[in-house]
Each structure stands twice: as structure tokens, then as C-alpha cells.
Design a protein around this nucleic acid. Structure first.
Lengths: 225, 225
DNA sequence: ACCTGAACACCGTTCAAGT
DNA sequence: ACCTGAACACCGTTCAAGT
């Protein structure tokens, strides 16, 4: 929200008041991305949607990268407030936290690619790790282990979401089966015998929750030591 | 390797023999991507590198997407042959398999983005799941559980690799610390107290192995039931 | 103080040729 | 049979102005 070059909103002194604002631009960008995908977001098209010259945007953002960073930022900030952490058992608290993260990424799949390209560490983005660390430390893990365990959950969630096809999970499964079916059974015995089971893992929240529970099992096993 | 439109290599009948081949084009593309990154790979630049007109490439590939698919395919196929699965304990076998996958992605980070964009199910790509399923079923998991567990390992590996910065892990850690340090300690107590531990999770193979071992612990816990 | 068109250096791909 | 330039519809961004 800082940076020197953009027009001031409260125009001190006189001169025309700005027609646009970072907020209004980001609003429009968010809408555009939601409607037509990340690939459709260009400076030119965004400006057109705002009835402005392309170069006007450069008065508010240094360039497209800065705009994209800000976009991730507002999108995360606006996401449904994380449910208050109840004081249930650590496992249930952590499970709900990660499911909330997953929910956000399912709703804004474009965030995955963007955040992998340029990892975000804005204050807002740190609320989730903060909550995760608190839960894991309260459960009994040392800080270093808690940090690594949380990071693992985080990476799994992004990995899943990066492959996730929100449009049509059923299609993904059908395509997988179609591509696995012709494989020679003697070279691929396990895969051939488990086509349906394999296809079922390619999309859908059941798979996400399986992996999440597997990780929670792993953490639980370490606590028991 | 099929598809109708490209020039035949063994030019049956007469006519000029083709100057290029899918193989030679992919070779050049691989080199270009390795040298300058995925963003630098354009049809125009690739053609120039091959001393050919841009449109010549369209005689060999229907378009850029098909070229990218083929690129992932040859790159995976060429990867160091997966170590023969010894007949050690399942945990060690699976660990080595996943580490081999990670090694490939660390060497070809651009594969992560491409494979997330268009999941690949070529015969070659199925060798890894085949091995994974075999190990997990031999260890005692039912097919459905084995498939889901393998998928979890796979997704975690891609998630890690998507965030992985092969250039300079140390820089990533320093940047994380710089961005976390100014956070108010009363709002972010756990994060503030564990800055170093948190930064350590942001890059590096130790973090990858921690997560991998955590998942293996989870699997082991399920086998014990 | 704020906005913007023209221009530059790029894209992928269609079309209609050239040899 | 194989190759390719021109053209079209796009990009992000710099520069030099316009009000």
C-alpha cells in the first residue's frame, strides 16, 4: 500500500482528484480474474474495463507484478475470517485451520500459481502460520518441529490445489481411466489392477482430506514418542 | 509421437527430406528452457535458434501446447532411470522413490508449473505411480488406500517443488526473516518467537525430507492398526 | 496533479504462398 | 513435400506529451 509514484487519494493541494484508486483497480482485476481466469488479466484489458487509458494504471502500480502482488494481498485479506480457534483438541483445531486454507484456494485457484511464483509474506498472510504454530506447540511439539510440520501441511495443501480442477472432477477421473486403461497389464500390474482407485485420487475433496489426515497421523505419531 | 500433420521423417516417396525433427526441436527447446527459463520459450525464439522460420515449427507440432506436452514427456523419459527397487523394507523403498522424483523436479523446476497446468498421464509418467502402488500394497495397504497415500506423497512433492527456489535457499531464508521481524510480537507471538525455525522451513532439502518422513510416519501408523 | 496516445519490442497463430 | 513471410490480434512498458 506504500510506494511513491501513485496519485495520492486525499489530494493535498489542488489539481484534479484522481479518477481511480488502487482499491477500485484491484476490485475490477479481481472480478476479471474470477470471470475469465488469470490468463485473461492484462493491463490493457483491465484498463479498458475501467474506461481508462492503459498507462493510467501505471500511476497506481509500478507494473503488472506489483498489481498481482496487491491482488493476492487483498484477496487473502478479504477471505472469510478464519474461524476462531476453539479450544478443542489440537487435531481438530489444526484440521479446521487447514480446511479453511483449502477452502480459500478452492475459491481462488489462481492464487496458487501466483503465490508459487512470488511467495507472499505480508502481515495478513502470517495469521495462518501463527495459528498453526500455536496449535502445534500447544500440542507439545518443539518450535522447530512445529514449524516444519506446519510447512508440510501448507505445501501439501498448495500441491493439491495446484492440481485441483474445480470445474469438473468427474471429467478428470474419466480422463485418467481412459489414459491408464490401454497400458500393458504386465508392465503396469498395480496400476492396471487399481484403475478406479487411482482415478478416484485425481480430484475431489476426499483425496484432500485423506492426505490431511495422513499428515495428522504422522504428527500424532511423533507426539506419542 | 503420433498426430497427423508433421513431416514424415522417413520421407516415403520423393520430395525434400525434412530439415528438422520433433526430436531436434525438443532438444533445442529443452536447452533453451534450461538456460533461460520457461518464460523465455517462445515459438519465435525457438525457431530462430534452429535457424528456421517460425511457422516451420507448426509442421511438427500442432501448436505451443503440444510442444510443451512433448517437452515434459521427453524430459521425464530421459530422467535418470529410477533406481531399481531393492527389496529392502517398504519404508526405505518408498523414501528412495519419492526422493528420486524430487531430484528430477529439482533439476527441472519448470516441469512443476507445466504439469500442474496440464496433468500428464503418458505411459512413461505412470512408472512412478506403478512403483509406488507396488510398494504400498506389498506393505499391506488395500489398493484404495495405497492409491490415496501415493497421491498424497506425490502432491506434497509437487507442492514443495513449486515453492522451491533452487537458486539460493539462503536468500529466501533471509528474506523471510526480514519480513517476519517487524510483525508485532503481541499479535504474532508464536511466529515472532520462532523466526529462525520458520525461516528454516522456507527452502532446502531438510524441509522436504522432514515432510516426507512425516508422511511415512502417517502411513506406518495406519499399517499398525 | 493526473491522465494518456504513440511507439517499441515482444507474443501465438492463420493464411496464402513459395520452392 | 516441405518451408516460410506477411498479417492479425494480442502483450508489458517507456517516453513524451496533453489538460
Amino acid at each position: 500500500m506504500a510506494a511513491g509514484t501513485q496519485p495520492t487519494t486525499r489530494a493535498r493541494g489542488r489539481g484534479r482528484p484522481p479518477r481511480l484508486s488502487r482499491e477500485r483497480i484491484l476490485e475490477s482485476a479481481l472480478e476479471l480474474v474470477k470471470r475469465d481466469g488469470l490468463g485473461a488479466l492484462s493491463m490493457r484489458r483491465l484498463a479498458e474495463e475501467l474506461d481508462a487509458g492503459t498507462m493510467t494504471l501505471y500511476g497506481y502500480f509500478r507494473g503488472k507484478d506489483e498489481l498481482l502482488d496487491a491482488l493476492v494481498d487483498v484477496s487473502s485479506a478479504r477471505s472469510k475470517r478464519l474461524r476462531e480457534l476453539g479450544d478443542g483438541p489440537w487435531r481438530q483445531q489444526l484440521r479446521e485451520l487447514i480446511l479453511a486454507v483449502r477452502e480459500v484456494l478452492a475459491e481462488h485457484p489462481w492464487e496458487v500459481e501466483l503465490r508459487m511464483r512470488r511467495p507472499l509474506v505480508s502481515p495478513g498472510a502470517m495469521r495462518v502460520p501463527e495459528a498453526g504454530l500455536q496449535i502445534l506447540q500447544a500440542a507439545g511439539l518443539a518450535p522447530a518441529e512445529a514449524a516444519r510440520a506446519f510447512r508440510t501441511l501448507f505445501l501439501y495443501t498448495f500441491g493439491f490445489s495446484g492440481f485441483g480442477d474445480p470445474d469438473d472432477p468427474e471429467r478428470v477421473r474419466r480422463e485418467t481411466m481412459a489414459q491408464v486403461a490401454p497400458l500393458p497389464a504386465d508392465e503396469y500390474p498395480a496400476v492396471s489392477a487399481a484403475i478406479n482407485e487411482l482415478a478416484a485420487t485425481m480430484a475431489g475433496e476426499e483425496q484432500f482430506e485423506f492426505g490431511l489426515d495422513l499428515l495428522l497421523d504422522g504428527i500424532e505419531a511423533r507426539l506419542g514418542r
